[in-house]
Design a protein around this nucleic acid. Structure first.
Lengths: 236, 236
DNA sequence: TGTACATCAGTGAACGCGCGTTCACTGATGTAC
DNA sequence: TGTACATCAGTGAACGCGCGTTCACTGATGTAC
């Protein structure tokens, strides 16, 4: 969203839109995703309810845009970590990327809920959102491309390969992030990473680990190290 | 809940309570957990809203009881599978138990949401509920007790051991299900199983795998086999 | 620089909705003598 | 077996709430000549 460009009116519009989003997120941060009320947001901004409709067509529109932004932020967090140390060993980078995602989720649990937990019945994912989701897992692809899949994952790998063959968008996506890697290897690895990462982070965010005797970070390390071992990711 | 005992009045009460729950679940099955309205349930039963209050003190009470029941059903599904083939190799049983849990979740996605996904802000988990949750993972314990933890999991294992040492309830729980196993080994394994199982099943239930080129069952097999390998679970 | 006009942010009233919950009641069911 | 009484399931009206959304409006801001 271009803030700071255009006519004064346009700049004002962009700023107010941003303020609405901010207030909406603050509200969801407290009450959890799903606790979004346009009237409450309006009151927070010192404005009447209908005023919001000058900036967003509906509640769903606002929500959809927030989901969209969330993917962007998650992707940015992972990408930032990837760019921080581009030349470290793959094994080390895998841990770092996973932990970066986890830290982002912990810092912004309402955003995490928005894109990963919330059963969003009304908010369907438009194509652009799916496009954005690819950015979250993307940085993992070149890292995992340094490994290989293991025998027990052969069948899964075949299914993934079939997906790559059938869908150009998927093939392109993998090639964009990991042009030098074997696509099926990288994507199979990413699938496993995604599933394990989601398992740990979603349970942690929902507070299901409360009172249990382990540290989520340790658990995440064990899980990622397990993938690194299975895929024989280089440690140097 | 004892249906069929007591005075006629009591039996009637129990039956109506069951009907209310059933209608509530049917409603949540359609609209997702969180779409529970007492008025709608009452209408479904051909009764006015306030009538519900003769059977449940409040909406939250009803929800809490449904959550409680859900844990019971999940636990029953896993236990049933465990009792079906008690003498098979641990490796095989691990796969079977995990798949049984997955199948239960797929068959009753609203119940799964209720206990695993729903951000339940108002419905706190009473101690009895926690007690029930132990029944879901319990049957995994003796199976995993046949293995050993691996080097990369050493730190996690220590944390788990500390938890066992500090909390008698935890120690008792593990001992009940796996009296002959090393507690730390079984519990560390169960933690990993839980996290991976939840990762896959929650994403599948939420439809996040839609359009992707893999079968969840294959993914689950890969993940459980990975645990079996890491823990050197006997295959015979 | 000054005036006429167009744009558009925000208001306030209103719509219709469904929600959880309370309360005094009626009428059927079950119980005790 | 019959009658008096107690229990209690369910009703209907009402309370107060907040929600998303529409609409005609006013008044300030920006634009064009």
């Amino acid at each position: 969203m271009p803030v700071g460009n255009g006519t004064p009116r346009q700049r004002y519009r962009d700023q107010v839109r941003a303020e609405i989003k901010e207030a909406a997120l603050a509200q969801m941060y407290i009450g959890g995703a799903g606790a979004l009320s346009l009237n409450a947001v309006a009151k927070e901004l010192g404005v009447t309810g209908p005023a919001i409709y000058k900036y967003f067509r509906s509640r769903d529109d606002l929500l959809t845009e927030l989901v969209f932004d969330s993917y962007g932020e998650a992707a940015a967090a992972v990408r930032a970590e990837a760019e921080r140390t581009p030349h470290r060993p793959p094994r080390e980078r895998l841990h770092a990327l996973a932990e970066a995602y986890r830290q982002w989720a912990i810092a912004a649990p309402h955003l995490f809920q928005l894109l990963a937990i919330m059963p969003s019945p009304t908010v369907d994912s438009p194509p652009e959102t799916i496009e954005r989701a690819k950015g979250v897992l993307g940085p993992f692809l070149p890292v995992l491309g340094h490994g290989r899949t293991w025998p027990a994952a052969a069948e899964l790998r075949e299914q993934v390969q079939g997906w790559i063959d059938r869908r150009d968008a998927v093939a392109d996506w993998v090639r964009t992030y990991a042009p030098e890697a074997d696509s099926a290897t990288a994507l199979t690895g990413a699938l496993i990473v995604w599933v394990r990462l989601h398992g740990i982070v979603s349970l942690e965010i929902q507070g299901k680990f409360t009172g249990m005797g382990h540290q989520p970070a340790t658990l995440l390390t064990v899980e990622m190290e397990s993938i690194a071992d299975s895929m024989a990711l280089p440690a140097t």
